[in-house]
């Protein structure tokens, strides 16, 4: 009691209560985010700066004794590297295919498991399962699934007709990669969409139905517009994730080495991150590889900014508190 009185006597105690609350809230906020913030600075921000410095050098990853500053040479090289251009083209193509299909599937699954039907939880678990399977295991399963000799896919297709001997990973490697990517990401996106769907007040839909709207019209004119911020979020993160794909094409490549410098994916699955990885760990061009990745970052940032610009036209934040 005495102590409290002494504290109250100090000038600082005359700070308005709302300001004290604000300070406390700020301190709490920064304390709560500090684990992530510290991790981001130490494990991402500082390495990012180091990687940028590396991109201006001829560093080979092995011996600092031979490091030389090469200016923008690595960046110039990237623009004349036919493999980098090929890889970027394949990556953008994969993104253009995978992102819309992924979003559509994720939304469809979310709409399905949002219905008041029996065994909803079971379906949600089943659909979510691929998302938690390690990518190495998933790729291995797919590799066996599409194997021309003993694979299930050809066997299933064979049931419907004549003998099927499609060499999926040779003739359609990008199709397999796209399917693996879409399948693996479906559960995660579904959960985000589901959360968004459950945040839409039921009154809106009910009011529309009382006014005579059918299910399709409710989805088209009520659900989707109110869900657009979530669609936007999944779109941005989906694009970023697709542009960074590295492990899946390496794991689907011929051989059993997986993500190691000896692996070379088929030309159709030779993506940008794969090219950067091989430049770094096969040719030991750490400087050039870093420049490639910084250019990828620029592409990602550019696409994200364009999306943010266009989002004003189609993202509807109608039910903010």
């Amino acid at each position: 009691m005495t102590g409290a009185a002494r504290v109250l006597d100090r000038p600082v105690a005359r700070i308005a209560p709302w300001r004290r609350r604000g300070l406390r809230r700020a301190v709490t906020f920064y304390l709560l985010i500090s684990p992530w913030l510290i991790g981001f600075v130490l494990l991402a921000a500082i390495p990012l700066v180091m990687a940028f410095l590396m991109s201006l050098s001829n560093y080979d990853g092995l011996n600092l004794e031979y490091v030389q500053f090469v200016g923008l040479e690595n960046y110039v090289r990237a623009f004349t590297d036919p493999d980098a251009q090929h890889a970027l083209g394949r990556t953008l193509l994969l993104m253009a295919v995978v992102v819309p299909l992924s979003l559509t599937l994720q939304l469809a699954l979310a709409l399905m498991v949002n219905q008041p039907i029996r065994f909803t939880s079971l379906f949600r678990t089943i659909f979510y399962l691929p998302y938690v399977i390690p990518v190495v295991a998933a790729a291995w399963v797919w590799k066996i699934f599409v194997d021309p000799t003993g694979g299930l896919l050809n066997a299933l297709l064979g049931v419907a007709g004549a003998q099927v001997n499609v060499r999926w990973l040779v003739e359609y490697p990008t199709v397999v990669l796209a399917l693996l990517t879409i399948w693996g990401a479906a559960g995660g996106g579904m959960v985000v969409f589901l959360a968004g769907l459950q945040g839409i007040p039921a009154e809106y839909r009910e009011a529309a139905m009382i006014d005579g709207a059918n299910r399709l019209q409710v989805t088209r004119h009520i659900t989707l517009p109110l869900l657009s911020p979530v669609i936007f979020f999944n779109l941005v993160t989906g694009i970023i994730a697709t542009l960074q794909i590295l492990v899946q094409p390496m794991l689907l490549a011929p051989g059993i080495l997986g993500l190691s410098p000896g692996t070379v994916p088929p030309r159709d699955n030779y993506l940008y991150a794969v090219h950067a990885y091989l430049e770094i760990f096969v040719k030991q061009l750490f400087g050039y590889g870093s420049a490639l990745l910084w250019l990828l970052f620029a592409v990602v940032l550019g696409l994200t900014l364009v999306l943010f610009k266009t989002s004003r036209r189609w993202v509807f934040y109608g039910i903010e508190p």
Partner: peptide
């Protein structure tokens, strides 16, 4: 959502760039 998007974009290249470090 905007903040999350920006953070996601900022963190996008971090893992692969950081892998070199």
């Amino acid at each position: 959502l905007k903040g999350a998007g920006v953070l996601a974009a900022a963190a996008a290249a971090a893992p692969i760039l950081a892998a070199c470090q």
